[in-house]
């Protein structure tokens, strides 16, 4: 279970974890919409949101180090794009505005994704009327992510155990053929999954 880093804390048992998924999804959407649309001059609003999120975060019992770690990992992407905002009139204001907004939104989603198992998010998306086919595909995708990560790791290990040179081109080539092999295996596995689904009455 090396890859439980993906959803390590989504199964804790805090008041926030116990909230119905639909409530969490909708409130996430509300917080984000409000954060994005409120003008940056209303500083009190953003302080309020930040305070609220910090309290929520404390209630979830997820370690602070993890939450801020995730923020730190994801922030550079936002920062990279935000830099472009500087080259205009009022640039610094816009820069600060989008940086604050994106950080708060990021914080909200980190809380959502680490307090709600994906299976439950799918169930409530289904209730919201998301097409069944998309739900099926998302469920399959999430399920086999972990299997494919394992498979990729195994392939990679088997290859590195027999690789003795490290020229960059060789490395790219190796990685690319690993990806190719992963695809071939995925198509084979898809066939077997189809058989297993049919065996239990699918279509």
């Amino acid at each position: 279970m090396r890859h439980d880093f993906l959803d390590r804390y989504s199964r804790l048992n805090s008041p926030i974890h116990r909230l119905p998924t639909t409530v969490k999804l909708l409130s996430t959407l509300c917080i984000i919409s409000a954060t994005v649309t409120v003008h940056f001059t209303q500083v009190w609003f953003f302080i309020l949101v930040a305070g609220g999120l910090l309290i929520l975060s404390a209630l979830t019992t997820i370690p602070w180090r993890f939450v801020f770690g995730r923020l730190m990992v994801l922030e550079p992407f936002a920062l990279g794009i935000a830099v472009m905002a500087l080259f205009q009139e009022n640039g610094v204001f816009v820069f600060l505005s989008i940086l604050t907004k994106s950080t708060l939104c990021l914080f909200t989603v980190i809380l959502l994704s680490n307090t709600t198992p994906f299976a439950e998010i799918l169930l409530s998306l289904k209730r919201f009327g998301v097409p069944k086919l998309l739900i099926t595909i998302l469920a399959l995708m999430y399920r086999y992510l972990f299997v494919l990560i394992d498979e990729a790791e195994r392939l990679n290990r088997a290859r590195s155990s027999r690789t003795f040179s490290s020229s960059p081109f060789r490395k790219w080539n190796t990685m690319a053929s690993l990806i190719g092999q992963l695809f071939v295996r995925s198509t084979e596995r898809a066939e077997r999954i189809y058989a297993a689904m049919s065996a239990r009455g699918w279509r």
Binding site: A119, A139, R143, Y144, R192, I193, A196, M197
Partner: peptide, 15 residues
């Protein structure tokens, strides 16, 4: 009822 060789092929749902 058919039990497949690789449980990962047969366990395709999220829970």
């Amino acid at each position: 009822g058919l039990l497949f060789q690789d449980p990962d092929d047969q366990l395709f749902c999220p829970t």
